[in-house]
Design a protein around this nucleic acid. Sequence first.
DNA 1: CTCATTGCAAAGGATTTGCACTAAT
DNA 2: ATTAGTGCAAATCCTTTGCAATGAG
Lengths: 155, 155
Amino acid sequence: MSHESDAAAIEADREAFRSYLRDHNLPATAQRLVIADVVLGTDRHLSAEDVATEVKARGASAGTATVYRTLDVLVRSGLVVERDFGEGFKRYEASRGVPNHEHLICTVCGRVTEFRDERLERMTTLLAEAHDYSRQRHRLVIYGLCGDCRRGPAR
Amino acid sequence: MSHESDAAAIEADREAFRSYLRDHNLPATAQRLVIADVVLGTDRHLSAEDVATEVKARGASAGTATVYRTLDVLVRSGLVVERDFGEGFKRYEASRGVPNHEHLICTVCGRVTEFRDERLERMTTLLAEAHDYSRQRHRLVIYGLCGDCRRGPAR
DNA sequence: CTCATTGCAAAGGATTTGCACTAAT
DNA sequence: ATTAGTGCAAATCCTTTGCAATGAG
């Protein structure tokens, strides 16, 4: 198994983006399509710069402003989620229709692992209520050592 | 009850900062002391700009660079914690020796409420383990409506 | 054709840094 | 006296914006 989502899911997202553009009378420019392909075609959390680099790696080209503007369109379409891990810049991730998920980040190698947990969902709702808030969403990031880094660099 | 920590705790923090400076052969300049007083004297989460403003309000003066440099010293001393709520800038909060606490943020008025929960602590450790990570720390922010904003602006 | 998008460069906001000057010990 | 800190402005980093040229429908 690779770390990419299956081809069908990716293809569905691409088509969804085209539909979104059509439905909103937004021109389907070459730049938009490549950028969408890059972000929707991986499960990684890419920075705007990562996206620009990958676009060029694919032989295409898109100015920085266009990258940011298109990421914005993707976020508004709901197909992509903006993340801020406190690194000083934002990252973008294909949402794959997953309503909410948490992140585990290795403090040594930076590896990111995602997971979902229903109990956590419920717990945050209760915690909010206990303090007279009505929960809308939450964000949990757990920092720690991933198995590989814990077991040491020696293979 | 006010929303400030009690005077004794604040005074203890101030003294701790002076000790820290002494122990590290760092000059106790007027700027450092005012900035420390501002940050350690409230329970709010201040931005660098908030700090600079408050310093001036107290009749003192400190350049922007000095504010950032001093906040850095405070963070290294362990008396202050740096927070990133994804607003595009950082906030600083007196740590008061509290090892870890969570934040509830009102999406309407921006109010911040803190709380601690042991179960959550344990749960994050278990969640990390379940994915072959060893937990070091975590950060949870719950976004929602605070009671006042939910009940409406009237009255 | 017409209007939205693109690219580039300038503008922005937050934070950092270089450096001559000033102050703490 | 020494050594570190301070202020100011220039510099960075990430992101946004203005505007003339360009391309999609």
